[in-house]
């Protein structure tokens, strides 16, 4: 009852303030001029990214430097997490010791196998159509990271490591993705463009669909980088707690 009183007070204050505010508040009906510029120019016009999706064209073209530094922040955060959980060489070898086993019943494991293939396809579709539909590199990469998570849940992390996807490889794939982003950003300098320039250096249209110039490459590399980064984090988090306590020398 005591908690309900607080809730009721908050609700009445909220509704009262909202009613008071609503008397001289007009909901916004028009576009801001800057938004209008982006909507007009993302596909047509002189300053064009040749992408029908205005949000992706802003993220990777008009405000590309913001996004480049955002990716850098994400990269540094993951490196920081890995540093917090760092292990010596012998310890990381010991963390890999263990047998992949099927703890869950048979149907769960069989379904996991099929779902992993389907999720990989769906995530690739999200990432590669970032310039046409909602979605893009980050969203696709997040969907990609679900696949290793499912395998960890159904078969344990040792199954992933036995088949060649361990933490080091994940970091390598992640670095390849970041390197790809950097190379795509630097390519225009070779043909006397400026840094992160999009049109007319990259082809705007190919195979019957608008590519958005460099957007499709950025999306592809961001997809790899984000997916592999999340995979590294999940692999670290799935080290058994007893092993980690032993490495740290903590007794509890």
């Amino acid at each position: 009852m005591k908690r309900l009183i607080g809730l009721i007070i908050i609700l009445t204050i909220t509704l009262g303030v909202a009613y008071y505010v609503s008397q001289n508040l007009t909901p916004q009906k028009s576009l801001h001029p800057l938004g209008k510029f982006y909507l007009k120019n993302s596909y047509f016009g002189d300053y064009s990214a040749k992408s029908p999706e205005a949000v992706t064209s802003i993220v990777w073209d008009y405000r590309g430097l913001d996004t480049l530094f955002e990716t850098a922040v994400f990269f540094i955060a993951i490196i920081g997490s890995l540093t917090l959980f760092r292990l010596s060489k012998e310890q990381s070898e010991e963390a890999k010791q263990g047998e992949p086993k099927r703890e869950l019943p048979e149907p769960v494991c069989a379904v996991t196998k099929i779902i992993v293939a389907m999720i990989l396809a769906v995530s690739a579709s999200i990432a590669l159509h970032g310039q046409l539909t909602p979605g893009g590199g980050f969203q696709g990469g997040s969907a990609l990271a679900v696949a290793p998570l499912l395998i960890i849940a159904a078969y344990s992390k040792y199954a992933l490591e036995k088949n060649g996807l361990d933490k080091t490889r994940a970091i390598i794939i992640r670095s390849i993705g970041l390197l790809g982003i950097a190379l795509t950003a630097l390519t225009p300098l070779l043909v006397k463009g400026y840094f992160m320039q999009n049109q007319p250096i990259f082809p705007g249209k190919a195979l019957g669909a608008p590519l958005g110039g460099s957007l499709v490459y950025y999306n592809l590399f961001e997809y790899l980088a984000v997916g592999a980064g999340f995979t590294a984090v999940f692999l670290l988090l799935s080290i058994p707690e007893e092993k980690f306590r032993k490495f740290l020398g903590v007794k509890q």
């Binding site: 869950l104 019943p105 149907p107 769960v108 379904v111 996991t112 099929i114 779902i115 389907m118």
Partner: peptide, 10 residues
């Protein structure tokens, strides 16, 4: 359709 029964079984 594929995941729901697996989750319920687990």
């Amino acid at each position: 359709l594929l995941v729901a029964p697996a989750g319920a079984t687990a």
